[in-house]
Nucleic acid binder design. Structure first.
Lengths: 230, 230
DNA sequence: ACTAAAATCCCACATTCGGGGGAGAAAACG
DNA sequence: CGTTTTCTCCCCCGAATGTGGGATTTTAGT
């Protein structure tokens, strides 16, 4: 097995150059907090602080930073949309997304839109700065939860036969419960279900409770998604 | 900020438990080197050391470790193939791949086969141990070059052709409305949606009404079915 | 025959949802 | 510049849903 002896150069930029970071975050508290973290860290400085996507687009285009820290939840256009447009203007600008939730869909959309990295907001200061460094040296920092989501995405890519795999809990339902669930999943009101199955409204409710318990859900939509295999 | 009341259990292993690591590496020098790194680190110990994929399959199945360190270039079957078969036996076993080259194709194949993380072999000792820790706590450690390749993969995915034919009315929705609908379809309560999109509860309701009007539906489930193309 | 499971029904209470109204600010568009 | 669309927020109210506690009868299994 071959070992590469060439040591990876730590930075591909001048050691004494300051990384200029643009900040896009609507919540004032978080915003000032992030700004002070960056401005107080040696080697970093803020370069444009924006509270919403549109002003960020304008400001960043006019005064491009070295990288962008972008909240995903913004008033007006989303962070994802903002990244997409930003990338049209400045394709090589690295963008590090910040989010409170590990929402896989949102993460993938952002990545597809051109985000370079993805951190949860509760990332501590030192990790945040490390991530900025990493992004500037060609990496793609991700919180571990997010990295795992991304990897899972690939693993689900492997076998995608059209067969819809419904949750196994479905099998534990009784006949009647499954009938009720089937109607539930079509959006019928309890009244209608009662009517169609020729049972009382209250009986439908009893079944629904039992279905939710068995499926470990708490709403009609969650039950429907499990039933349809989503 | 919204507090989710249904809390899931956090850890799936004891904090003071020793992580047992299986090693699959053909080159004797590297193998003993890795083994000594692991056995000399507190909290880690080797649990099976194998020089090729087939013996690894046997040994690991018979004596499952907590995680596997696997070279990607093995004599006989490849590391990727080995992971695939291993995952059939022990689907939850985390596997950290080691490679010399940042070969995107190989990386993606391994990820699809079930690898959980991916490191370059020149990763220093401390980073290696950190990666093992990360993988055990639900992460997916990747070298920065590899992380960047993965992210680039997504960016090239851009817009995949829509598989599901969704109702045409969806197109009449505004950006924000579609975002709300997307969350609606996952079963989130209005409160949660408000939180995730960073808008008020009332605004969510406004969108929902408008969505229902445009889709000609009168309930969340009906909207979800239209959105998912049922 | 005894028992467990399934099917049926009822009440009460809190929460969520669906539908109606209105309204201001910002963006897009002509 | 004015108009329209989009995005944001608020109030009220009734209907539907979610969750807790029961209960009775029928069916199925041992």
């Amino acid at each position: 097995m071959l070992w590469l002896l060439r040591v990876e150069s730590k930075t591909n930029r001048k050691a004494n150059k300051i990384t200029r970071v643009a900040l896009v975050e609507d919540e004032p508290g978080v915003r000032t907090n992030l700004a002070s973290i960056i401005d107080n860290a040696p080697g970093f400085q803020t370069c444009g602080i924006y509270a919403d996507g549109l002003s960020a687009l304008k400001g960043i285009s006019a005064n491009p930073p070295d990288m962008v820290l972008m909240d995903i939840n913004l008033p007006g256009i989303t962070g994802t949309e903002c990244v997409k447009r930003l990338k049209n203007v400045l394709p090589k600008l690295p963008v590090l997304m910040l989010t409170v939730y590990d929402d896989s869909d949102q993460v993938f959309k952002s990545l597809m839109a051109g985000a370079t990295g993805y951190l949860l907001k509760r990332t501590p200061k030192d990790k945040l700065l490390a991530a900025i460094d990493e992004i500037m040296s060609g990496g793609a920092p991700m919180s571990r939860q997010i990295a795992r989501s991304v990897v899972q995405f690939f693993q689900e890519l492997k076998q995608a036969p059209a067969v819809v795999q419904r949750a196994p809990e479905i099998k534990s339902l009784t006949d009647r419960e499954e009938q009720v669930l089937e109607h539930l999943s079509k959006g019928y009101a309890y009244k209608e279900i009662a009517d169609r199955l020729n049972i009382s409204f209250e009986t439908v409710r009893t079944y629904v409770r039992s279905i939710y318990e068995k499926l470990h859900v708490h709403s009609r939509t969650e039950a429907t998604l499990k039933y349809l295999g989503h």
